[in-house]
Amino acid sequence: MSPGDSDSPYNFAYLDEDTKRMIRRAILKGVAVPGYQVPFASREMPMPYGWGTGGVQVTAACLVPEDRLKVIDQGADDTTNAVSIRKFFERTAGIATTETTTEASLIQTRHRIPETPLTEDQILVYQVPIPEPLRFLEPRETETRKMHALEDYGLMHVKLYEDIARHGAIATSYAYPVRVGDRYVMDPSPIPKFDNPKLSDNAALQLFGAGREQRIYALPPYTKVVSLDFEDHPFQATKAEHDCDLCGASDSYLDEVILDDRGGRMFVCSDTDFCTRRRAAGHVGCLGEPA
């Protein structure tokens, strides 16, 4: 099916143009107020809520026929849900797709930020399950909206304080809360906190879509994003203390792979494109073979 295919029962990128306009308005508002959660009339999508319907709607509203789309889940292009979403846009928008980070004009992601630095010509769309960083401290939407409006964020630090008091460290390893532009506290979606530094001062436009919770928020390019911490317990972006066993990278986030039932395991880059291209360039890890 191509975009111009008049037999297609669906509009380009599935959503009708009125819906896209509504979503674009929400995106623009989000860009204008970085980190603020903009309510939007999320539509039912042909995939289940919680499976990326927010990200898919944001992507659908941003896509133009010239775009080249990359979809990753857990950093990989080949995980089932990434495949399913990529196929969806191939079918409904007929656009080109890629697995190469540098070639993509729009990247939809679940739970990772690519290792390869992004550029001003790229948009990164995050799938967000629970957009409210205060949700597990305060279950009521009416109350959390008020807390954001009044910058009433003391409770957030109480949570971090309790972590340190109990565990000696802040016990949040993913979906680590950040403060955007010295104003809104934001949930960066369940990316590992290793990725948090990449949120800040990023050249790409970063958009966040939560379908079930009907919220869109955004980080315009080069926005200051600070991970919450204490002066004497500063934020640390952590990862497994290994190098990638395939490409030898020491600075990328690693998945742990269980090799056998005798405790054998290896560590490999979670960003499959990053790893593949390093190996193609001749880098070899201690369990890898030259490409």
Partner: peptide, 21 residues
């Protein structure tokens, strides 16, 4: 929330960011 967390909340609400203090 722990006793010290209860006491610390108001300090944090007005901007205290040093855990030890």
């Amino acid at each position: 929330v722990s006793a010290s967390g209860n006491v610390g909340e108001r300090l944090m609400a007005v901007g205290a960011r040093h855990y030890g203090d």
